[in-house]
Amino acid sequence: MNVGKQIEEGLLTKNPVAVQLLGLCTALAVTTSLLNGLGMGLCVLVVLTLSNGLLSALGPYLPERIHMVSAVVVTASLGGVADLIVQAFFPDLAGNLGLFLPLMAVTCVLLSGAGVYAYENGVASAVLEGLCRGLGYTLVLVLVGVIRELLGKGSFGEGLLNSGRGFQVFPAQFAAGGLVHPVGGFLVLACVIAAVQGFLARPKKAARRKETVRR
């Protein structure tokens, strides 16, 4: 079990949103603010970690033929429970996330690759994998959410920091309100993905240059 590699892959080189382009639907739709991005990200993180652990533990007792079905059933149920808990204890967040809260189950099934990793590895490794991928997902959602909130409303952490009021970084009249709309989601997410891909491509370029010089 290579912990460092797993963390690096989950957060960066195999980042579920920015590199594998999974779960884009939620990443586009809910990231209108730090609160929404973080809320959705943490929900997915918890469900993904739990379901990975559970599936890894259950794996030996399940015939391989029903592996995929069981993965979907377990993940969807955990997603459903998380949905209910958020609705009960964080009604404001549930209101913001709306339709995408129940869709979280689908996102989790996608991110876990229907439990493929969990079935093939031990419980600890599967939990770590779920944690890393969940963190990678959360990271992108938070990043997109912060950018859209900051540029689109001029505020930071509304509904979350500073006893719910957030910080008004610059007056809202200067803010590009369109970024809070769905169009802005596409624009900002595309820029974030481009930045991550550019960053990942950099070491390769340097290596190639070195090679040409040597030649």
Binding site: R65, I66, S70, V73, V74, S77, G80, I85
Partner: peptide, 23 residues
Amino acid sequence: LTGILCLLCAVCGLLLGLANLLT
């Protein structure tokens, strides 16, 4: 196979029901 799946679904259903009851 059917038995195992049914059992799994039953447990999951129970879990969901319980969560619903509480919330």
